[in-house]
């Protein structure tokens, strides 16, 4: 029995988390939300929607939440792969499902979502430029020809997951994850995903200025 765990890091997402979890649970039975010290009732909302909730006692950052989700999923001996999924509803569950099938069918270690492989995703010019530059930087440092280095939707196989250790608690974890995947010489593939930029996800999402923080955290690890 293959078992997929969907890992959803969340912080103050009470308005949307129940809906997101319900949607995910239509396709996946095992959903774990990592609550990073929310002050609203995200935890209760996520639980009521049927997710397992792991609560950080204090705010640690999204990278730390992802690693907690990975450690949690690895404690399940039946887990065969994890899906990382953003809590704000910007990802499509159908994409996630298709990526898991892709991973299994092609025997890959990791499938990374990319919003730039087709033209479904509507994206602003500056955001696109920064994401593209980040992808180019990643290609330069890791040799992985990714088109989108900061996509929150990924599927990671158990064997690879066990070797990954995220230490960047805050923003640079996406790059760190790719770095480690590159270092481990994993079999990877990209998969075209649709990012739905709603007003909500835009207001919750990363400010473009945050790319400065990511850069600094990457330089001074």
């Amino acid at each position: 029995m293959a078992r997929t765990w969907v890992v959803v890091p969340m912080l103050n997402e009470a308005t949307v988390i129940a809906q997101v979890v319900e949607e995910v649970r239509r396709a996946f039975d095992f959903v774990v939300c990592i609550d990073d010290g929310s002050t609203d009732d995200s935890v209760a909302q996520a639980r009521s929607a049927g997710a397992t909730v792991v609560e950080h006692p204090t705010n640690l950052g999204q990278g730390a939440s992802l690693q907690t989700g990975f450690s949690f999923a690895l404690a399940d001996p039946q887990m065969t792969e994890v899906v990382t999924f953003d809590a704000d509803g910007q990802h499509s569950v159908a994409d996630a499902k298709a990526m898991v099938e892709e991973l299994r069918a092609k025997n890959l270690d990791v499938v990374v979502g990319s919003r730039f492989l087709d033209d479904r995703t509507e994206i602003g010019g500056l955001r696109k430029l920064i994401l593209k530059s980040a992808a180019r930087y990643t290609r330069w440092t890791t040799g992985m020809a990714l088109t989108d280095a900061h996509n929150g939707l990924r599927v990671i196989d158990r064997d690879l997951l066990a070797k990954i250790r995220l230490r960047q608690n805050r923003m640079a974890h996406a790059s760190e994850l790719i770095d480690q995947i590159g270092d481990l010489k994993a079999n990877w593939a990209e998969y075209p995903t649709h990012i739905i930029y709603t007003d909500y996800s835009r207001s919750k999402g990363q400010s473009l200025l945050n790319s400065v923080n990511i850069l600094v955290e990457m330089l001074f690890r």
């Binding site: 397992t52 792991v54 006692p57 907690t68 949690f72 999923a73 404690a75 399940d76």
Partner: peptide, 19 residues
């Protein structure tokens, strides 16, 4: 601190097999 908090969080959640 992260390691400590992570351990506490996972222990309190009771582990994935109970889920």
């Amino acid at each position: 601190v992260t390691e400590l908090a992570r351990r506490i969080a996972i222990d309190r959640a009771g582990g994935p097999t109970d889920v």
